[in-house]
Design a protein around this nucleic acid. Structure first.
Lengths: 124, 124
DNA sequence: CACCTGTCTTGACGTCCGTCGAATCAAACA
DNA sequence: TGTTTGATTCGACGGACGTCAAGACAGGTG
């Protein structure tokens, strides 16, 4: 049901867990930590955080690598490497159309991270 | 200057920025990414994510290291090292009272991370 | 005071990460 | 077909990370 034709990396981490009460409510179990920590790790680099943001905020929901690369002072291979990291973390998805490759965000995992970090409004 | 009476590290990153529209709304600037990426990085390890959760969800708002260490299959120094990482990221704070050291969460930075990851409620 | 318990620091080890240049692959075009 | 352009993969390098054992420090107890 979550299996599509894989355009690039066939990554598919267990990103469909029902997900998690906030970090601040009860201790996150080891299995949940094992699943979500890699996503935080992927966001733990300034370049990838900006890439993630550019992809997630792109008009039309997608953006071309050719628009991502010139935004940084890094070589193409390095940007490609960071994009692969985001892909393998389950945060983005890539599709090649003709000459160009387009990236789009995967909201599911982002939502899980946001839910985990959510802070209850001071009172319950 | 390594010899001090300061109970623990006096770390103090720039954690008081007014903070950020969601990742998905507009591109996060490089300066913001540089400030927040290290916090995500600190949460990007399963042990630290659990530690953070245990601290943030502790009753009374604080928890003793002596209650954290036995929860993992790791040596004391390793746990101490992870706690230092969380401290230097500005996510937690430590205080020594008598024999024991107590850790408590710093909600400010957590709130910034949550705000950055927030997803607008599906409507455009 | 000496001793013990709890915690942090130091030094070391192997592994992973960020970056680059060079090579490779994919699609469009002459 | 061969060439050009866009993107990824490969191989390598220096630096950072996760872990541990051993040592140092702080504070309570005899």
């Amino acid at each position: 049901m979550s299996k599509q034709s894989t355009p690039l990396a066939p990554v598919d981490p267990a990103v469909d867990a029902p997900c998690c009460p906030p970090l601040t409510e009860r201790r996150v179990p080891a299995e949940t930590a094992a699943v979500l920590a890699p996503a935080f790790k992927a966001l733990g680099d300034p370049v990838r955080l900006q890439l993630m943001s550019m992809i997630a905020s792109a008009e039309g929901g997608e953006i071309c690598v050719c628009d991502l690369t010139p935004a940084f002072d890094l070589t193409g291979p390095t940007i490609s490497h960071h994009l692969k990291t985001l892909r393998e973390a389950g945060l983005v998805d890539a599709e090649r159309r003709g000459t160009w490759v387009y990236y789009r965000a995967r909201p599911a995992l982002l939502r899980q991270l946001a839910a985990l970090l959510a802070i209850e409004p001071t009172q319950s």
